[in-house]
Design a protein around this nucleic acid. Sequence first.
DNA 1: CGACACCTTGATAGTGCTCAATCGGCGTGG
DNA 2: CCACGCCGATTGAGCACTATCAAGGTGTCG
Lengths: 245, 245
Amino acid sequence: MTGALHGAVSGETICRMPGSCASCSLRPLALCGSGDEVGLDLIEALRQPCRKVAARRVLFHEGERLPQVYQLFDGWAFRYKVMKDGRRQILSFLLPGDSINMSAIFVDRISYSVKTLTQVSLCVFDAGDLFNFIQSHPTVTRRAGIHCANANAAAEELILDLGRRTAFDRVRHLIAGLVKRLQARGFDSLTYPLPLTQLHIADATGLTPVHVGRILGEMRHAKLLDLKRGWLTLHDLDWLQGSSR
Amino acid sequence: MTGALHGAVSGETICRMPGSCASCSLRPLALCGSGDEVGLDLIEALRQPCRKVAARRVLFHEGERLPQVYQLFDGWAFRYKVMKDGRRQILSFLLPGDSINMSAIFVDRISYSVKTLTQVSLCVFDAGDLFNFIQSHPTVTRRAGIHCANANAAAEELILDLGRRTAFDRVRHLIAGLVKRLQARGFDSLTYPLPLTQLHIADATGLTPVHVGRILGEMRHAKLLDLKRGWLTLHDLDWLQGSSR
DNA sequence: CGACACCTTGATAGTGCTCAATCGGCGTGG
DNA sequence: CCACGCCGATTGAGCACTATCAAGGTGTCG
């Protein structure tokens, strides 16, 4: 199976990518930084038409061959692994603008599965094109390396979470990280859209949904935050960000 | 503080690197593969004299500036993070031949601490030199990318461990991974050197040393393996590797 | 021989899991 | 418009797994 993108899946349509992203106003790929515009026009030429996929669909399966790099243009998704008995571990959530599988530039087999949370728009790049792009410009080589280092650092931060933090702090830290990323995307309020169920939070924090529910209830009761039906309301910003480690 | 390497630390001496590694017979860096020899002579020219450091010493502190790439030529070490209250999470163990901080090529601040387990020999490369090396050869660019993807995949495998496996399976999986890496380095027996205390295993698996001790006792009693005073003896290889996920 | 680090074992506590029942919201179809 | 079904959230009771605290044992090294 090659996933939803290659079949005639309902909920999928081809759409033309607009020139800029209204909802997120992001750079096309992490390979193009915000400081200057090296290669921006080049990479735009490499971009292929993007696609819409419905919510709650598997985009890619772990182990699948995947010689393209996908970027999440709009909507939410997540990367995860599953064990034989069905237990699932979410590796990260993907927000508008995030690349899904940058490593496909070098390794054409994906080491995790990807599923949509909401309806999404995806942009596609050929891995070979991106390799040439990276290889030919020192600035872009460096950005690719920095992107990779950041991905590693994020994974290792999650390792610290799962290995050494209490359930309560894992949930807090997960939400704090998402809020930070939303703020970086221009959201600035005390209410954020967060299209996650308690099951998603449980699978991201290594907990059970029931226990996540208790923790969220606790936070709500303590007037720290309120996460309900896809919307997060923050009541204590200091507590959320505060005193990690 | 810039760590043990830059100060007059007892246990540290300068030594000339031999032409090849007797104990591990590895390539100088992951940037040079085993298939062909692209750039092997070049990177040997970039290599700087290597140093010896004693066991149980901190090599680098998280957050420290570090514009060189270090490779573990001989001996064992580990990468870790610590929390304010002293809890420690080991991110990975470093075996002879492993690079310690490849990401320094792109990001000159290290995002974890590193400590030796045994006495080690370290080789040093200038990050700028390696960047130029990577950038100028497509083959090497690709290897750098593959190295990065592998590092990511390893971190995400550990995330799965910590999030979704029982204490027993975490310990088993950790040891299985170390054995596999030792085998790739030419060790092939039922007895392996494993210079880890139960505290190290606990910090790598997110457990307490006491509980690790119980688990190892259980494994010993069940005639699965025996880990004692730095030596691992395997009694059931199928069980060790068996049925992950 | 003493000091120290590490390991082992026991007793007890607590965090988070499992099983189960109920409830509420939302979409679907009659 | 309402009934139904489904998914997700909530709550409770009991339990399992792992942590914590403490004491004693063993090996190693100076």
